[in-house]
Design a protein around this nucleic acid. Structure first.
Lengths: 240, 240
DNA sequence: CGTCTCGCTTGATGTAGATCATGTATTTTC
DNA sequence: GAAAATACATGATCTACATCAAGCGAGACG
C-alpha cells in the first residue's frame, strides 16, 4: 500500500492534500497493470474512474484504429489523464493505449467527485490541473495552426531540453514513429525535419539529441515575432 | 445594476450560485464597453480580471498582428474567456479583440480566486466550465489533425444547425472571412469549400445556409468511421 | 541460421490548400 | 455623389506535406 501513497504524492493532483483525505482516497483507489498495446479505455466510453500513471508510458490516440490513428498526447508517470472527461462525466474524446508495460492507480469517479465538494484543497488543485491541461491544448492548437512541422519538432526538442533542466543533450523518450505522430507528421517527414534542423545546430545520433545552438533553434521556431507579440513559450523557456 | 445581475445569471459560470454570493461578486464586478477593433487584452499579458461577455462578439486571436493572425475561438454573449489564464495567473495565450461594439462584465481575479475556496458551488461550476473548454480544445485539435478543411466547414455548419435547435436553415453569425480563419482556412478556400458542399445538399445564399441533406453532410464530415470507433460529435449531434 | 518483421532513411510523385492576381458588388468615407 | 475600402468569388500557380516505393540494419522467432 505504501507505494500507492508514494505514487499519489508524486502526482500534482494529490500532492497538496492533507494526509487524512489522501488516505481516504487511497482506500478507494486500486492498482492495475496493462501489457503493451492494451487499451486502458477507448474513445466514446464513459469514464467511471480517474487514471493516474505510476509507471510506463501511455499514448492518447484518436482517429480510426490503424489507418488514421494519431497521437494527441504522450503521458509520463505522475500524469493523470482526461480529468475533463471524468469531471463532466461525458464520453472520452480519445483512447489511451499502453506503450510498454504500464502501472496505473485508478480512483472511482463517483468518489472523486464527492471529495471535490467537501475538500476545497482538492478542488483547487483540480482547477489548476484542468487549467494547465486547457492551456496545453491551446498551445497545441497554436502549434498546429501557425507553425510548420519542422518548427514543431524544434519546440518539441526545446521542451525536452527544458525538462532536462536546460541541458543541451537529451535522449528521445519514445521511438521516432511515436514522436512523429505526436507532432502531426509522418515518420518520413520527421526524418527530413531532423536533417533540416542540422542547420540550427541540432545533432541527432540514434535517439540522442544534442542542441548546439539553442538560441538559433528558438529563433527558427518562432513564427516571425515581428511586433511586441510576445509569445507564450518564449516566457516559459526564458523564465527558468 | 440589475442588468448586470441578469447578465451573470445567464452565464453558466454564475447561474447556479446562491443570490448571496452572486450579489457579493456583483459588487466587485464592473461593466465595460469596447469599440470595434479594440483589444480587451493581448497575448502575453497577465490576467487581473475575468471577462464575461454580455453583448457583442469577440474573437480570440493568436499569431503576428496583421499577417499571421488566426482566429482560435469566436465568443458569444454569456461566454467567459480564458478562465484557465485567470485561475493559473499565467500570461494570456491569445488576444481578445472586439468584433462589433462589445459589452462585458469584469470580475477581479483576486476576488474570484478567494470566492472559489469559500464557495464549493463556484468551484464546481468552475471545474465544469474548465473541463468543457478543455474538451472543446481537444475537439479542435482532432478537427485540425484528422479532417480536411472542407470537412471542418461541414461540422461547423452542423454545429450551427444544432444550436438553432436542429433547424436546417441557419444564418452565418459572422462575415465569411472570420469564419474562414476560425476554421483555419483562407477566405478563398472557404469559398471553394462552400461550392464543394453543394454536393451534400448545402445551399448558401449570402449569409443564409440551408442544409437539405443533413445525413449526407454528416457522412461526409466523418473521417471514415470504419470500426466501432464512435466519434464524439456523433454523440453530441445525435443525442439531441 | 535464415527468414520476418519493424524502425528508420532516402528518393520520386501526388495533393490539399496557400498565395497571387483579378474582377465585381457593396459599403464606408470624405 | 465620387472615391476608397471591403467582402466575396474565381482562376493560375506554388509549396508543405503525405503517399508510394525501395533499401538497410537490428531484433524476434521459427
Amino acid at each position: 500500500m505504501n507505494d500507492m501513497e508514494l505514487a499519489l504524492r508524486r502526482s500534482p493532483l494529490f500532492c497538496d492534500l492533507s494526509s487524512g483525505v489522501l488516505s481516504e482516497i487511497l482506500s478507494e483507489a486500486s492498482s492495475e497493470y496493462f501489457s503493451p498495446g492494451d487499451y486502458l479505455f477507448t474513445i466514446g466510453g464513459i469514464p467511471d474512474r480517474l487514471f493516474v500513471l505510476v509507471d510506463g508510458s501511455v499514448k492518447m490516440v484518436a482517429g480510426a484504429h490503424n489507418k488514421n490513428e494519431t497521437v494527441i498526447e504522450l503521458l509520463q508517470p505522475a500524469d493523470s489523464f482526461l480529468i475533463a472527461a471524468v469531471m463532466t462525466n461525458k464520453p472520452y474524446l480519445m483512447s489511451a493505449q499502453a506503450i510498454g508495460t504500464v502501472h496505473v492507480l485508478t480512483i472511482p469517479a463517483q468518489a472523486l467527485r464527492q471529495h471535490v465538494v467537501s475538500e476545497p484543497q482538492l478542488a483547487l488543485t483540480l482547477i489548476a490541473s484542468l487549467a494547465n491541461q486547457c492551456r496545453q491544448m491551446v498551445r497545441d492548437v497554436k502549434d498546429l495552426r501557425l507553425r510548420t512541422s519542422f518548427q514543431r519538432l524544434g519546440v518539441y526538442l526545446l521542451e525536452q531540453a527544458d525538462k532536462a533542466s536546460g541541458r543541451a543533450t537529451i535522449v528521445l523518450p519514445h521511438v521516432k514513429k511515436l514522436i512523429a505522430s505526436r507532432l502531426n507528421m509522418t515518420p518520413e517527414n520527421l526524418s527530413r525535419a531532423i536533417h533540416s534542423l542540422q542547420e540550427y545546430g541540432v545533432e541527432v545520433v540514434e535517439d540522442e539529441v544534442r542542441l548546439h545552438d539553442i538560441a538559433a533553434l528558438r529563433r527558427f521556431c518562432k513564427v516571425e515575432t515581428i511586433l511586441g507579440e510576445l509569445d507564450d513559450e518564449f516566457v516559459v523557456l526564458t523564465e527558468r
